[in-house]
């Protein structure tokens, strides 16, 4: 088995390596991918049309809005799937073995975590809100915010983290994030243009068509961040307790 695996890997790898000589060089400005009309359009027109200097955020939340919407749905489904596979309710006979008690980590770790947690969360909110002008966005900020709750659970025990972010609240947050995203698209429909065509909202958002698109991106990024935060914490708490949600790592 190992031999056939190695053989097939070597054959596929040498085929792929022999194909690399047709690929563009490293850093080639005139490669088909970099010269193509789509990426040239994104680089040259995004700031003019959306007033968002960060092209990645603009493409992610505006031009490829459908893609990002269903990406958020994929995250949501993954969270729901983990709960469906793992979560057990009631008192099972399988008492947790070889698990540290719920008192969390030592004193030093607790104090350090309580000192840096507010800054992590503040930075996460900054990453979400400032994703238009600097690297960042809903996914990145959402993961950071989720990681702050995971850190809380690691330092103070899962019960303490669950008192801030209970299981019901994670599910509600995950659903509300998607509802914000989809609702924003439906709002564009109601205002008379296509689904997720943010330029329809210039009559209710200040600053003209371009700023309407910019503000709409912020709105959908907030929705994405809510879903990602909730699902990240839900994934951690289910995986670390085998779905019992009683005692963490």
């Amino acid at each position: 088995m190992k031999f056939f695996g190695l053989l097939s890997v070597i054959i596929v790898g040498s085929l792929l390596l022999s194909a690399t000589k047709d690929f563009p060089d490293w850093g080639d400005q005139d490669s088909p991918a970099n010269e193509g009309p789509v990426s040239s359009f994104y680089i040259e027109k995004t700031e003019e049309k959306t007033k968002v200097p960060n092209m990645v955020t603009a493409v992610l939340a505006d031009y490829r809005g459908y893609d990002t919407m269903f990406e958020t749905v994929v995250i949501f489904i993954a969270g729901i799937g983990i709960i469906a596979v793992l979560r057990t309710y009631g008192n099972n006979d399988s008492t947790p073995k070889n698990q540290v008690g719920d008192e969390g980590a030592g004193l030093l770790a607790k104090i350090t975590c309580s000192l840096i947690l507010p800054f992590i969360q503040l930075f996460a909110l900054y990453v979400v809100a400032h994703g238009h002008h600097s690297p960042g966005g809903g996914f990145q900020g959402g993961v950071m915010l989720g990681a702050s709750y995971i850190l809380l659970a690691l330092a103070y025990g899962l019960a303490r983290a669950k008192s801030c972010f209970s299981e019901k609240r994670t599910l509600v947050f995950a659903a509300v994030g998607i509802i914000i995203y989809v609702g924003w698209g439906v709002l564009c429909l109601i205002m008379g243009k296509e689904f997720l065509n943010y330029s329809a909202l210039d009559s209710i958002l200040p600053g003209g068509v371009e700023m309407a698109r910019s503000h709409s991106m912020l709105a959908v990024e907030i929705g994405v961040a809510l879903t990602v935060t909730a699902v990240m914490f839900s994934m951690f708490s289910n995986l670390s307790t085998k779905g019992r949600l009683d005692k963490g790592l």
Binding site: A33, I43, M55, V56, V59, E71, I75
Partner: peptide
């Protein structure tokens, strides 16, 4: 080129989702 970055953001997110679900199933 911003387009590969956007596409790979999608790939990272889907990767995290599949990895989390796969870990849950392997726990089961």
């Amino acid at each position: 080129n911003p387009l590969p970055h956007v596409l790979m953001l999608t790939a990272i997110v889907v990767g995290v989702s599949t990895l989390g679900l796969a870990l849950a199933i392997s726990q089961k």
